[in-house]
Write a protein that binds this DNA or RNA. Structure first.
Lengths: 343, 343
DNA sequence: TTGTAGGCGTTATCAA
DNA sequence: TTGATAACGCCTACAA
């Protein structure tokens, strides 16, 4: 039978209120009493009951704010599903969740939405733009008692409680590993990056290069383009490079705009090129189905959404800080067979 | 604010007890009252509070029994961790979990352990041996009010509440897909099966063959061996086949004993052979690190353990039947880069 | 057929 | 500094 506060109170000869004060550091307690209660709790192996906590927590009213740069970006759909799932759990604690979305990585807009949300939230989950002003704002919120978790994209300064997102370096390494396996370690690579401002994109490049050095010295990067996650731009720049350097045999699309890249490939009749991409959206599914993309490296967006909300709930209900500074997602490899349901 | 039974009672002008009777079908209620209460509950969008339920459920004492054919098999370590995680959740409901392990897929022993466990459990999670006598026993337990969920290996008869495990067919397809990508669709394959009695192993073979037919007609299966999950046997039989048919270029190890297979490969100096395997254990990690196994198809053992216990808890606390008949795990592809932590 | 009351474990408030 | 008590949402035994 699990140990309860009541039992500790009886064994220690004090009231439940006092036990609560000791165990949760509220109010003042006689040092001797405190010592005794702590010992008894330790001895009995007390573990707080989450259901009891949940019920008691309902008297408070917390609201978790979430800001995502997700408008028009299908990648976030899964993350929203994960948030939704965790939201149901949060409802048991009478904790509400307010999601606000932004179009693109727009710094001014993000700052503005933070301002709007601030008065009504007790916690912020932020799809952070990598900028000094955001870091400062996180610092400010934290000081005012609104803790912040960054999701999917991080800042450098360690003011947030933690970060939930992919390990960009490992993602790049995994892409390089797949490319090595698929090309026998001989690829001449075009890197299709997104935007060099985005921290995660750079990490993928570092990881990719690091793997080439350590495990696949036979592969080399011939060229790099930036797509700005824009299919039209991606199309034009890919076409230009492939025309200029027809010796390219593989492309690593480490950000969005894989459709644009693949359009160029098709138009030039270069279906022999091995394309490794990132993430899994309906557009990506179509490219894999067509055989244009051979593999894609995913970052568990559903889990990102679910985990971040769960951490926020634990903090609000339980005063529990996240156990880790970084909750790194798995880099899942998807190919035709483990993504597409045959009929 | 979430709706509670109390609010429904007030709006309907009846007591909380009556609302409870209507909503949970206990005791008799005046049809008119019932109709009214149901309408109000519907209108207000009542969702029962899990914390409240959990707390009230603590007065009962449930025990979940788990039987695993796991002794001496490292594959189950992750599953046990998943069970352990869910067990902590179960503790909030005062539900206990009793795990019993068996060495190998031993029918008589499994029947015996079921007998031993029966008097003390309210629910059984069974790593089922695919046999008529087990099916009959499941039927019997269910009739006596002890529901059964099968985990990792299923029976054919649909008497269990549901099955939690890998989709064997998709696993085989994914292995074939990886092999196709890694060999340019030209592999001459040796299949290293485990035991043809095991349903999951056969499914992997079906999936593998089906993928060859639909997507990789250029690959062909030259030979099949059964390893009985025994490394020594696997070593000998692999060696024999590779000596007899040196034209083999790839091996699909769809059960245990990958170490034995790889020992034969090393001894014959045939490191050029593309090996695709299953599951991820410390032994598999070593093989991947050495480069002997190029990819392995995993089946989320942690999630299997966690999910099955969670479903049992939901059933016992909430009378909630599993939403699906089969909880199919993802087939995760792991290669060197997304398994091994570089230093 | 229906209502009342007490308890599950934790927390907050008020009184001592 | 401490204790007593009520409340969170749900369930159940007992009373009417």
């Amino acid at each position: 039978m699990a140990v309860t506060i009541k039992e500790i109170a009886e064994k220690s000869g004090v009231s439940r209120g006092t036990v609560d004060r000791v165990l949760n550091h509220r109010g003042s307690v006689n040092p001797d009493t405190e010592k005794l209660v702590k010992e008894v709790a330790e001895e009995l192996g007390y573990r707080p009951n989450r259901a009891g906590k949940a019920l008691a927590a309902r008297k408070k009213k917390y609201n978790i704010g979430i800001i995502l740069c997700s408008e028009g970006n299908e990648f976030f759909d899964e993350m929203l599903k994960g948030i939704d799932r965790a939201q149901q759990e949060a409802a048991d604690y009478a904790i509400t969740v307010t999601v606000r979305t932004i179009k693109g990585f727009n710094l001014e807009r993000q700052l503005q939405v933070i301002d709007e949300l601030e008065p009504e939230i007790n916690f912020l989950i932020l799809n952070a733009i990598h900028d000094r002003r955001i870091e400062d704002r996180i610092h400010e919120l934290t000081k005012k008692g609104i803790p912040v978790i960054t999701i999917n994209s991080d800042v450098e300064k360690d003011e947030r409680l933690c970060h939930v997102g992919s390990d960009g370096i490992k993602s790049g390494e995994t892409a390089a590993g797949m490319m090595g396996l698929l090309t026998g370690g001989s690829a001449k690579v075009l890197l299709a990056a997104g935007n060099k401002q985005v921290l995660g994109h750079n990490q993928r490049i570092w990881g990719f290069c690091s793997c080439l050095r350590k495990r696949y010295p036979g592969m080399q990067i011939l060229s790099t383009i930036e797509t700005e996650d824009d299919d039209e731009l991606a199309y034009e720049r890919t076409k230009a490079v492939l025309t200029d350097k027809p010796e390219v045999t593989a492309i690593y699309v480490l950000a969005g705009a894989a459709s644009g890249v693949c359009r160029a490939i098709k138009e030039l009749g270069r279906q022999d090129i091995t394309v490794i991409a990132c993430d899994y959206t309906p557009a990506m599914e179509a490219l894999i189905r067509e055989g244009l993309v051979k593999a894609t490296i995913c970052q568990q967006p559903f889990t990102q959404g679910k985990t971040s909300v769960e951490l926020a709930v634990q903090y609000l209900v339980n005063d529990t800080l996240p156990a880790k500074k970084i909750y790194a997602m798995k880099n899942e490899i998807r190919i035709y067979e483990n993504t597409i349901d045959w009929v």
